[in-house]
Design a protein around this nucleic acid. Sequence first.
DNA 1: AGATGACCAAATGAGCGCATTTGGTCATAC
DNA 2: GTATGACCAAATGCGCTCATTTGGTCATCT
Lengths: 255, 255
Amino acid sequence: MTSPETEAQPRRQDTTAREERAHRILDTAAELILRWGYDKTTIDDIARSAGVAKGTIYLHWKSREALFAALLRRDRVAMLEEVRHALVSEPDGATPRALFRHLALALMGRPLVKAALLGDTEVLGKLIRLKPKVQTSAALRSLSGGYLRTLRDHEAIRTDLSPVEQANVINATLYGFFVITPQMPDDHRLTDERLAELLAETLHRALDSGRTLSPEQTQAIARATLAFLDETLGLAKERLRLSLSTTDLGKDYAR
Amino acid sequence: MTSPETEAQPRRQDTTAREERAHRILDTAAELILRWGYDKTTIDDIARSAGVAKGTIYLHWKSREALFAALLRRDRVAMLEEVRHALVSEPDGATPRALFRHLALALMGRPLVKAALLGDTEVLGKLIRLKPKVQTSAALRSLSGGYLRTLRDHEAIRTDLSPVEQANVINATLYGFFVITPQMPDDHRLTDERLAELLAETLHRALDSGRTLSPEQTQAIARATLAFLDETLGLAKERLRLSLSTTDLGKDYAR
DNA sequence: AGATGACCAAATGAGCGCATTTGGTCATAC
DNA sequence: GTATGACCAAATGCGCTCATTTGGTCATCT
């Protein structure tokens, strides 16, 4: 017997090849959106550049918007993984400071994520212009939530500032460094590494409690930091999965 | 003898009344530009609201653009004077930290100066859109120049960061606090006073050398801080004077 | 002289028609 | 089942017109 439809997995041809194609399409989309911006990047362009027919793209995503959502999400996951990798290789261990530094550095190398964070209409065009709502995504929310509290509980950061105040400082500083960079006069421009270092140091000085931590506490902080990162990463991965799965061409991409 | 034209001052009627009228016009312009934005605020509107004829406005400024330049400059001078006043009344004396705090607070109360600083096209419209050049005005330049060096020389601020790096930190942080504020979710919003305090403290921690200064050094810092402020203020006043003098309807308003 | 507002050239903006493009579908081919 | 591209309704962009508005001037009045 051939047992035609009792397959657990709905048999689809070469799942790997499908995924590869999806990524190829996203690669092309990334290239085009960075060159021409969202508004001027058409599905036809992407299909042609990726060497597939237009219809094929709609076998992967239900709309143009969904494709770009997937693109953004993929980039975000890649960035977070990059951060995670750098963080575990960090000699000092996973300190908040190291987290900020690697996060900043990774962000600078991801123009798409950066554009999304800054709400850059130049690149993201109407994708943003029409919904400037959810920008401050769940990431920062959850950051100002759980992680900050944990750091406070361990007295790794100051307790004389409320979590809301600390979130403001973090947001503002992070944001400021990214907005100001491209518009500094040439003779004031620093390397990405230096900027990331300065940003991390500024936040460190702004928030650090200054007290010397016991090895146990340091360990706990490192664990919490990685846990926070993994949580964020997991969430981002889940979102990405939704954006890539064929079965579920969900219509919700709230960033 | 009536000595008709040997008067030293070219006799013009009631200089005071003229100035008052100029300010009344600027007041109306300020109100209108904040309500409707630069693009939608017409000379006719201003004239009508200020109770003068359109021609009269052109007795004060040679163009619409010149009028708004005067407006910006007047606001900047007022803001700097406000800062100066707050700074000399400061119990701690004129520390850089107090300077930043008062500057931030004053800035928050001056939507026009803030809009100019942030390049807010919503308010300033084409006035900015056409010349996004000179934005980072001479103020910040001279700040990163003379004043920072003085602070370094007195070892009031760290010497392990270059002036350029310090300028980046200051710019980014300042900028970040202002950009992020309006777009924070409601439950994360702080008062202007608290924000200014946080900003000043963040910069203080980021830049301060941490060493205890002798009374003489403190004095020197205070003097330098006030001197810097006065220098900036003097420059701003000079610019404003050019924007208000009838004799010289100069065409240069490079911010 | 100082102030005014009618006046004008230029800019702006709304509306319209038309050609092209674009996102998305689906009958067809493999 | 999978991929394709011809196909279509809708959107976009462009050129144009026409009416209104607007910045700026200047003859006139005070």
